[in-house]
Structures are given as structure tokens and as C-alpha cells.
């Protein structure tokens, strides 16, 4: 299949950037990233700079790939990362727009590569359970209902790709943040710090310059793991509980 690609090219964070148009010959068995590999090979053969994009595991779990394809993070297929998106979902002669995940808190590094370290800083603010190595009691000493473990897993399955931010009209990171808060708040081990955690993580999220949720739910629709906005509701509950229930110094 012959495709026309409109790819966002940007030298660095301070460059203005713009679209470049390329023609590429692909076949339907290729993954989207393999199609970009073909493009890059073409560019290198012409001694031009290849398109920079983040990618690693190419099996939909590392969360590195980050591009908006025809206006949708990770492209048209739901619950699918870019690396797992295959070209059979496109037609011969299609024009495809490829842009980086855009948000003030995700500055462009180069081309389609963005800086998502804000997510790391949010986790550092409190997205953990404070347990040192060696302190743990027996794993079966903490009983967790199957359904609770399963719901916690549904939140913990987040791959930290940032598609939620990219999709949100407000560039809000609440699905990402709430997934971690919800995962840990659901488990008995995590309840102890729940109050402190939610306050700190929300504060960090605000400081990073993410937008505010207006419950559009585009995040859930574009999340490659299908994480539910019900976790945002749980975060809101945890936050209110913490603000109005816990002593002031948290």
C-alpha cells in the first residue's frame, strides 16, 4: 500500500517545528512502527535525518511509544498501543497525520519524542508504599478479596504512556494519577498512607502544569489498557476524605 505521511518534525524543544510530507510503501502485516522503520530507512539512504520516536518493547507494555495518529493517541484502534497497531487498519492511498503527544507538561524533545518525566515526579511524590526491603511479613498474612485484587490490578495495569494526557482536551493527567492512587488505596497495605499519598500526588500533578479534569472521558477511550474513569472518582473520594478527615499536617 502507498501512504502519504504528514509527520511532525521538530529539531528540539526550542524549534518551532512543522509537518513534513513523505511517501512510503508499506504492507498490511507491518506494525505502525515498522512502517516508520521503513520510512527511516528511506531517509537514511537519502542521507537525511530519520524521524525520532520513542519505542522499545513493541509488545504494548513498556509504554514508550507516544504518537498521535490522525488525531488519536496510539491511533484508531481502541485498547491498542502504536506498536501493536497494524497497517491492515489503513487503506492504500491514505494520508496519515503523525504528531507527538502534545501538552504543556510534555515538552517535545525531538520530532515525535516528548519528555514525560513529569509522570516520574508524580510517582516520586507518593506513588508507593513505604516499606523497606526485609520488613515484609508473610504474603498470605494480608488477605485481599479476589475482587479487590482484581480491581487494584485493573488500575495498576497502567503503562504510563501518557495517552490520557494527550487525548484530554484539558491535558489533564488525572487518569494516570488516579490509577496509582486507586491501585494503592484499594489494598490494605496501601491504605495506611492513602491520605498523605493523595495529597502529595495531586499537589505534584498540579505543579507539573497538567490541566483539570472535566470528565470528558477521552482518557479512558484512548487508554491502551482501558483504565476506567471510575478510578478518577476514587481519587476524588480519597482526596475529599483526606482534606476533610485527616489532621492538617500531612
Amino acid at each position: 500500500m502507498k501512504l502519504t505521511l504528514k509527520v511532525w518534525r521538530q529539531q528540539g524543544p526550542n524549534d518551532k517545528g512543522g509537518f513534513a510530507t513523505y511517501q512510503v510503501e508499506a504492507n498490511e502485516h507491518m506494525s505502525f512502527l515498522e512502517m516508520l522503520d521503513v520510512l527511516n530507512q528511506q531517509l537514511i539512504e537519502k542521507k537525511e535525518e530519520p524521524v525520532a520516536f520513542d519505542h522499545d518493547c513493541r509488545e504494548g507494555i513498556c509504554g514508550a511509544c507516544s504518537m498521535v495518529i490522525n488525531g488519536q493517541p496510539h491511533g484508531p484502534m481502541q485498547k491498542t498501543t502504536t506498536c501493536q497497531l497494524h497497517m491492515r487498519h489503513f487503506k492504500d492511498g491514505d494520508t496519515i497525520y503523525i504528531e507527538p503527544f502534545r501538552a504543556q507538561a510534555f515538552p517535545v524533545v525531538k520530532d515525535l519524542v516528548v519528555d514525560r518525566s513529569a509522570f516520574d515526579r508524580i510517582i516520586q511524590a507518593g506513588g508507593y508504599i513505604s516499606v523497606d526491603t526485609g520488613q515484609a511479613q508473610d504474603g498470605n498474612a494480608i488477605l485481599i478479596p479476589k475482587e479487590t485484587a482484581s480491581e487494584a490490578f485493573d488500575a495498576a495495569t497502567c503503562i504510563g504512556c501518557g495517552a490520557c494526557v494527550a487525548a484530554c482536551p484539558n491535558a489533564s493527567a488525572m487518569l494516570f494519577v488516579s490509577a496509582k492512587i486507586s491501585h494503592l488505596a484499594l489494598l490494605p497495605q496501601g491504605k495506611i498512607e492513602a491520605s498523605r499519598r493523595v495529597q502529595r500526588m495531586v499537589k505534584q500533578m498540579d505543579e507539573e502544569g497538567f490541566g483539570r479534569c472535566s470528565n470528558v472521558t477521552a482518557c479512558e477511550a484512548e487508554c491502551p489498557k482501558g483504565i476506567s474513569v471510575s478510578h478518577i472518582a476514587r481519587m476524588n473520594r480519597e482526596f475529599l476524605k483526606s482534606v476533610f478527615g485527616a489532621p492538617e499536617a500531612v
Binding site: V68, Y97, Q104, A167, P169, N170, G209, R212, E220
Partner: peptide
């Protein structure tokens, strides 16, 4: 929210949602 979205808008943006 406009600030958070950043200065550069998407050239193409298709909004999809669940339940709204």
C-alpha cells in the same frame, strides 16, 4: 486548561469518549 494544552494545537484531533 488552555495553558495546559500547550501552544501548539493538534493538526487533526478526533475526540472519542466513553459514556459522555
Amino acid at each position: 486548561n488552555r495553558l495546559a494544552r500547550g501552544a501548539q494545537p493538534y493538526a487533526v484531533h478526533r475526540l472519542r469518549a466513553v459514556n459522555t
